[in-house]
Design a protein around this nucleic acid. Structure first.
Lengths: 245, 245
DNA sequence: CGGACCATTGACCATAGTCAACCGCCGTGG
DNA sequence: CCACGGCGGTTGACTATGGTCAATGGTCCG
């Protein structure tokens, strides 16, 4: 695993112009963080919490989700190495959604106080983090469109396209495959589909030869076909350097 | 109509602590803006644009939407007086969604240059605008949950609850009603429902006596019943002062 | 070996989509 | 002034996608 400062520097300089002093301050910032290892399904933020720290994902995958009255979960987004899944707690006190690990994950927790101090002294670092939260919002918007206007197979294909593309961008994908440690039930709670429908839809896509998904591993067999099926256009991810695919 | 600086001061001080100098600078900021009047369905940002200004809504309603390949629209959010529907263009160059007016609307357009200068000189104003964009993101998250996990009537009730609650918060609702100049087809493109289903769902809710929706006017007949039907909890809107209902 | 959990399959059902027609209103133009 | 056309809303009949219910198999772990 890379060191924390490598991960965040890579992530933020991917889309923002940061000078040497900015980077030095960023490295100092992550040193103030404390590591934490999470097991599958373990929450580290619950709905209603008022956190005093924000997390950066070091390895594995974490997810944000709403807990509906009645107990149903709705997964909202997934986050991989370099992501800041709860940057919004800097300025929104009471969290309106929970965050848990999907599979095993490692995060570091950085005190809000340290981040806020850095925002005041180095505005360009603040703008870079702000931009991160804006890209998050773009991903949420795409999820609205995906879950509201695409039929089952396209909806699922789009999700897998996004996860693979982002894993590529983060440099944690193997050639033609990446880790997606989701269960079929969780995919259903992401796409708004019943678990049986998830199962059947995965099989129907598998039969087209576009991809495989099994045992937490996503394998791309035909990227062009998969993106066509999912109507996937990565513009909304706002990755400056397009991932090699 | 109120003056622009009244609207933005009201909006931002609703959830952020701004001192007298901050407010003075905000008022100066909106003076640099130019007004624009929009007709129904008129775009003022198109997908792929690289705008040099950001808008604040003065009156009426504007909407963000995705244009899918094939021409289908997916509405993502609606914005009323005081909202900043394209603040994200400050830090994300290429817009990934379009914005249009719903009904007649008035906006003012403020140059990015002026806003960015203010962010550097008055960080707390920047934080307030940042928080605005984070609340936007919370609304997007709720839309994911709404459109993905609620059945037709609940989904529609939730949308109307949000629109009324926000209109209340912005001070532009009448007692028990507010303007929602959407057509049934647009509601379908918001909730991911076919237009016939929208029509039937509106009628079924109307029959419960919870609300009326007709000719662009939303009338609340039984707020408690409507919120129960829509499973509506306004926490995610992060309005400090709860709107009177 | 038993139980828990996840994936898979089958049979049936319900919600919501498609297709099509009609109504009422309004603005335009003959 | 009235006829026409367009648009939004409404209704009906039919269809299909996807949900519910239920049972089975496989794997891992205690």
């Amino acid at each position: 695993m890379n060191a924390a400062h490598d991960i965040i520097v890579r992530k933020l300089s991917d889309h923002s112009a940061l000078d040497g002093d900015d980077l030095k301050n960023l490295e100092a910032l992550v040193l103030t963080g404390t590591g934490r290892t999470l097991g599958p399904n373990e929450d580290f933020i619950r709905q209603g919490d008022v956190p005093k720290v924000s997390a950066m994902v070091m390895s594995g995958m974490v997810a944000r989700y709403h807990l509906r009255s009645g107990g149903r979960r709705q997964y909202l987004s997934f986050h991989i190495a370099g992501d800041l899944p709860d940057a919004q707690t800097l300025f929104i006190e009471k969290t309106d959604h929970a965050i848990c690990a999907i599979g095993n994950a490692e995060i570091i927790l950085i005190p809000h106080r340290e981040i806020l101090d850095l925002l005041e002294s180095r505005p360009s670092v603040g703008f870079a983090i702000w931009r991160e939260t804006l890209i998050d919002a773009a991903i949420f918007r795409e999820a609205i469109t995906n879950n509201s206007s695409r039929a089952g197979p396209a909806r699922m294909a789009h999700l897998f396209c996004e996860l693979y593309y982002r894993a590529r961008g983060a440099g944690i994908a193997k050639p033609g495959s990446c880790s997606v440690p989701l269960h079929q039930g969780q995919i259903g709670e992401t796409l708004g589909m019943a678990i049986v429908t998830v199962n059947r839809t995965i099989q129907s896509i598998r039969q087209t030869g576009a991809m495989e998904f099994r045992d937490g591993e996503l394998t791309i067999r035909d990227w062009k076909q998969l993106t066509a099926l999912g109507d996937f256009d990565p513009t909304y991810l706002h990755l400056k350097r397009p991932a090699r695919l």
